[in-house]
């Protein structure tokens, strides 16, 4: 059954719990300032601060971003070796590290800047907590840690029609392809 993580910008309070939980769950070391600036240490889920509006009228929002597991993922098409693939059953876009050559074609293809490269130069990213869920947990670590319920993990088929349309619109925007999200 295909499942995905949904993010509600109106509920996010920017507490960074999801970012920390993701790092703990996936054994990712904390950034130094230098690594954060040059984006050279892997981070699978990132919280970003976004300011909007004019002077005197600013509002601040937060976006918690990780791999979108696009239905028609540009990274999968761009990958020259077949290291990246999308599992139709689960909806996961996964990387097979033994096939990755670190060429960064996926980085040039991803509209969200998701692909990360470790010290081994191989690509790594969110796998929707594959190990954690196989161990019997109900939700990915980021979702479980979210105190504001801004992140939600659910079955794509159980979403309301309205939500599906909204999600699909995002993906179409992201991948520029009407085959996204299977509509």
């Amino acid at each position: 059954m295909s499942k995905a993580i949904y993010f509600d910008i109106d509920r996010c309070i920017g507490c960074f719990a999801c970012q920390s939980a993701c790092k703990q769950e996936n054994d990712l070391a904390p950034h130094t300032l230098e690594e954060a600036l040059s984006q050279t240490a892997p981070i699978w889920r990132r919280v970003m601060e976004v300011e909007q509006g004019d002077y005197g009228q600013e509002t601040v929002s937060y976006i918690s971003l990780s791999c979108m597991h696009c239905a028609d993922a540009p990274c999968v098409i761009a990958c020259p070796t077949g290291a990246l693939s999308r599992d139709k059953e689960s909806g996961r876009v996964v990387v097979n590290e033994s096939k990755c050559i670190g060429c960064k074609m996926c980085l040039q293809a991803c509209p969200f800047g998701i692909p990360q490269y470790g010290k081994d130069d191989l690509m790594q990213k969110c796998n929707l907590c594959l190990d954690r869920l196989q161990d019997g947990e109900a939700e990915p670590a980021c979702v479980a840690s979210c105190p504001a319920k801004a992140l939600r993990y659910g079955d794509t088929a159980e979403l309301s029609k309205k939500e599906q349309t909204k999600v699909a619109a995002r993906l179409v925007l992201a991948t520029g392809n009407k085959y996204s999200a299977g509509i």
């Binding site: 040059s38 984006q39 050279t40 540009p74 960064k104 996926c106 980085l107 040039q108 293809a109 991803c110 509209p111 969200f112 800047g113 692909p115 925007l173 992201a174 520029g176």
Partner: peptide
């Protein structure tokens, strides 16, 4: 030699604008 972290985001935005 930069991390090239934004290259995909920028390229996609340009492509989308053109499409």
């Amino acid at each position: 030699d930069s991390s090239c972290a934004q290259i995909g985001i920028i390229k996609s935005a340009v492509e989308k604008g053109l499409q």
